[in-house]
């Protein structure tokens, strides 16, 4: 599904190298967790995979379903089935949530050769998916993420994921800013989408999210490289001992 080889990436402006030879293989149906100290490059990895401006890949390659991911535009990556749930979903005043959701769903359907959904069909679908995530339908009338609480923003991310039906989703610190109830709802939303063909990359600083979304593999990212890989037990060990052994100075 996703094959990352020797990935080196730096921030364009100050040419500071963030990823320094990262390797990762994710097969269909697998859930991988990436943990690591602040500044290790976790969010950079998500941004580089999604195609955000401001990063330069200097070495290495990323293949998604056999295709060179890095040569695709941001929206083409989404159409191909990649989804990034943002750590900080962006507020867009004036763009109505429902209109946004319908536009992204239909643009993605067009790109995948599926017929567009009309207003009524889409409204029905969006309401049903929103109800599963315990999202107040009034939220659909508001501007994208504007004035949403932390929990509402994260639930809205999962709603978008449910509508776009990606094959590979990156959850970037989806647990940050969530109380325990919201964490449960969001996790249930993610778990409902797990199947044999869909893969996830869960980026998190804390183990608690992994109590709800059980990973198959856990990796430690430190100073731009994966320095250790293991099963779910590795997350528990990190929770106990912290990242102190993986800090840059070590």
């Amino acid at each position: 599904m996703l094959s990352i080889q020797n990935l080196h990436a730096q921030i364009e402006d100050d040419q500071k190298m963030i990823l320094k030879g990262l390797n990762l293989e994710i097969n269909p149906g697998e859930v991988h967790a990436i943990m690591g100290p602040n500044g290790a490059g976790k969010s950079t990895l998500g941004n580089v995979l999604a195609g955000k401006d401001g990063y330069e890949v200097t070495e290495g390659s990323v293949f998604f379903k056999g295709e060179d991911l890095l040569s695709l535009e941001v929206e083409e990556r989404a159409h191909a089935g990649l989804f990034l749930a943002f750590q900080y979903p962006v507020e867009i005043p004036g763009v109505q949530m429902l209109n946004f959701l319908r536009t992204c769903t239909n643009e993605t359907r067009i790109a995948r050769g599926l017929p567009e959904l009309n207003g009524m069909e889409f409204l029905k679908l969006a309401r049903a998916k929103a109800a599963e995530l315990k999202i107040n339908p009034d939220m659909l009338k508001r501007s994208v993420n504007s004035g949403f609480s932390g929990g509402e923003k994260k639930r809205a991310e999962i709603l978008q994921m449910a509508l776009l039906e990606p094959q590979f989703a990156i959850l970037d610190e989806t647990d940050s800013g969530l109380d325990i109830d919201a964490l449960r709802i969001v996790s249930e939303g993610v778990n409902a989408l797990r199947d044999a063909k869909r893969s996830f990359l869960v980026i998190t600083h804390y183990q608690r999210l992994l109590d709800h979304i059980k990973p198959d593999h856990v990796h430690v990212l430190a100073d731009g490289q994966i320095v250790r890989s293991g099963g779910p037990e590795l997350a528990l060990e990190l929770e106990e001992r912290g990242y102190v052994h993986y800090e840059k100075a070590a």
């Binding site: 955000k52 929206e75 990556r77 989404a78 990034l84 004036g94 763009v95 536009t103 501007s143």
Partner: peptide, 27 residues
């Protein structure tokens, strides 16, 4: 136009030109 909003819209599969148009309409 807000670059981070533009990236957000594109990351959801909305082509760049259409994303810009949505943002101008909102403006």
């Amino acid at each position: 136009l807000d670059e981070s909003a533009l990236f957000y819209l594109r990351a959801r599969g909305i082509p760049a030109a259409k994303a810009k148009q949505l943002m101008v309409e909102a403006f």
